[in-house]
Design a protein around this nucleic acid. Structure first.
Lengths: 194, 194
DNA sequence: CCGCGCTTGAACACTCATGTTCAGAACTAT
DNA sequence: ATAGTTCTGAACATGAGTGTTCAAGCGCGG
């Protein structure tokens, strides 16, 4: 479902983006030489793949958005309507949280991006990512899974922030990955539930 | 209660830090010239106040931590013990959330700081900031205000992330400042309550 | 075997942030 | 008014990151 479908080489762009995400998230001011070194690639090669620094940041942002969109899609958020059962809605929510927690570094990167410098195509994708989630929340409210008086954007924001918090605790060694999803889900469902 | 007590001039360091926080949070890579311009101050003056960029970042981090410590202190977190009533605990929590929400940019700044580059004195202050909160949460658990099976660090993390989320919604224009505290409190208390 | 593509390290010029110095302006207190 | 302090703009040297070019190395298929 990813936008980019390039052929795979020994050090393919996807891997480079993966590592670039880690490096640039940990240290937003890292030089391209640092990124190339971390990816085990020559600086020239990095420039061949991504002509400018901004191109790399842009590709990284789009890739991060792709992953979020994939996670949303795979959880089954798009398949809900008025007839979807409460149990099914909760199952989707579980898959959603489970898929989003590992995306912590990517969410971190997206949040760190200065909004002014972000280009239009990127700016336009953020609402596209939130909209299906808010629709899903609206359905969950109709099914009495989520408190109906809460604004959907607040519920989605709560979901994001709790998920990010869970990833942060995992990264700092406090939280075992296996316990992250149930803990996050419990806090979210009680916090935004009836 | 702040560590620093300098004399006040027309463009005192506190104001500079205030504006530097905004600028550097919005754009972490902003140049010192940008900061100086935003503060309405010559670049030379900025260099007189903070000899190096790192000195500015360090002062900013310490100032941010000061504000957080002040907010915690003023909310009355330190005065609790086993005899504190549930109502009083909840009142403290309310003051805490209310005081922390405006600190959003500062929390953002502290989180963006690459952990490796942070010096020791700064590193040591973070646990000093969390410890009283966790103690407070432990008391709230004994008073049946917070679910006793949740780890205090998770509860504190939830409090932080919801507060940050509230500030984010205010900044993006979704949420009216007056409604931020009750909304955050409600979500938190239900999420981490019994 | 040979050519083709990709990678790589080195070298280069260029830009920009940084830190420093200095002399003049503005402001304050005596 | 005057001396002392601070602020300010300008200029400069320095260093680091960036983008470019090029020649050499390597793998792979024809």
């Amino acid at each position: 479902m990813s936008v980019q479908a390039r052929r795979v080489t020994s050090s393919d762009p996807v891997t480079i983006l993966e590592i670039a995400a880690e490096v640039l998230t940990a240290q937003p001011g890292a030089s391209l030489a640092d990124v190339a070194a971390a990816a085990g690639v020559g600086r020239t090669t990095l420039h061949n793949r991504f002509p400018t620094r901004e191109a790399l940041l842009l590709a990284l942002a789009h890739d991060s958005l792709d992953r979020c969109a994939d996670a949303t899609m795979n959880a089954g958020v798009h398949g809900v309507d008025e007839t979807t059962s409460r149990a099914e809605l909760q199952a989707i929510l579980t898959r959603l949280v489970h898929a989003y927690i590992p995306l912590g570094p990517r969410l971190d990167f997206l949040l760190q991006q200065p909004r002014a410098a972000v280009d239009e195509t990127l700016q336009a994708r953020i609402p596209e990512l939130d909209a299906p989630l808010e629709r899903f929340i609206a359905h969950a409210q109709q099914a009495d899974l989520i408190a109906p008086d809460l604004p959907p954007w607040w519920v989605v924001g709560t979901l994001y922030s709790l998920t990010y918090s869970a990833w942060d605790h995992i990264a700092s060694g406090n939280l075992a990955p296996r316990e992250a999803t149930p803990l996050t889900l419990r806090t979210f469902l009680k916090g935004c539930g009836l």
